[in-house]
Simulated scan of single mutants.
Amino acid sequence: MNRLLFFLMLASITLCGCGGGPAPVPSKKHGESRALEASAYREHAGLINQNGKNIGYIEVKESDDEGSDIHISADHLPPGASLGFHIYEKGVCQTPDFESAGGPFNPLNKEHGFNNPMGHHAGDLPNLEVGADGKVDVIMNAPQTSLKEGSRLSLLDRDGSAFIIHEHTDDYLTNPSGNSGARIACAPLKKSARRE
């Protein structure tokens, strides 16, 4: 009987070991790459709506190719909407209208809009395509911007800059902001907001 029990235990151990190594562990690779991606964005700004409620964040880093890469993650936006999205000249977001952010970020003195033959502003960005759940999470490039101090294209000059979401679609043509309507969300980017 003892001998039978011994053989059963031995067979059980052998079968468990047939996999050629320890049991597989879920890969952490995706989590690590996400952490590495996030850590590459050194500049961070909280995004608020007209009531001053935090609805997301914006991160910015120098692009490997050209200008700056911008990551925006937000919720509580109009579901399914296409919304104008621009960089403004001052890093000040006073509710409810965000007029404190000043005019468009336009150090090269251009007109507004990707379809404007005289354009476009350095701070013009593609429309945000909001999901049916009111959320957006995208990365886009702003080639005529920089995070380098002293550059005339720098978003981190003395008074910083602001990212503004508008209530309507940008028509990519009409000054000063493509008929995109009121400013409904704002994220101030300043040197003091830097993440080291």
Rank of each mutant, 00 (worst) to 15 (best):
M1T: 10
M1Q: 11
N2H: 09
M9N: 07
L10F: 14
A11G: 13
S12V: 10
L15P: 03
L15V: 13
C16K: 08
C18Y: 07
C18P: 01
C18A: 14
G20S: 05
G20Y: 10
G21H: 08
G21S: 09
P24L: 05
V25S: 11
S27K: 07
K28R: 13
K28C: 08
K29D: 12
H30K: 12
S33K: 11
L36C: 06
L36Q: 11
E37D: 10
A40H: 10
Y41I: 03
H44F: 14
G46Q: 08
L47E: 08
I48T: 15
I48V: 15
N49K: 02
N49S: 02
Q50L: 07
Q50P: 06
N51Y: 14
K53S: 15
K53D: 15
N54E: 15
I55R: 02
I55P: 04
Y57G: 13
I58C: 03
K61Y: 05
E62D: 12
S63Q: 04
D64R: 10
E66V: 11
E66H: 11
G67S: 09
G67C: 08
H71M: 09
I72V: 15
I72F: 06
S73N: 13
A74V: 03
P78A: 05
P79L: 05
P79I: 06
A81I: 02
S82I: 09
G84K: 02
G84H: 00
H86S: 12
H86Y: 07
I87C: 05
Y88T: 02
K90C: 00
K90R: 15
K90P: 00
G91T: 05
G91A: 06
G91D: 02
C93D: 04
Q94L: 14
P96F: 07
P96S: 15
F98K: 04
E99D: 13
S100G: 07
S100W: 05
S100T: 13
A101Y: 00
P104L: 08
P104R: 07
P104I: 03
P107C: 02
P107T: 01
L108G: 06
N109E: 12
E111G: 07
H112S: 04
G113L: 01
G113R: 04
F114L: 08
P117A: 10
G119T: 07
H120V: 08
H120D: 09
G123E: 10
G123T: 01
G123I: 07
L125A: 00
P126I: 03
N127Q: 02
E129H: 14
A132W: 08
V136K: 01
D137A: 09
D137V: 00
D137P: 00
M140W: 03
T145S: 04
T145Q: 02
S146C: 09
S146H: 06
L147C: 01
K148R: 14
K148A: 13
K148E: 15
E149K: 14
S151Q: 01
S154L: 01
S154I: 03
D157Q: 12
D159N: 12
D159K: 14
D159W: 10
G160K: 06
S161K: 01
A162Q: 00
I164H: 04
E167S: 15
T169S: 13
Y172C: 02
L173V: 06
P176D: 12
S177W: 09
G178D: 06
N179S: 12
S180F: 03
S180W: 04
R183P: 02
A185F: 08
C186F: 07
A187V: 08
K190V: 01
S192D: 09
S192M: 01
R195G: 10
E196F: 09
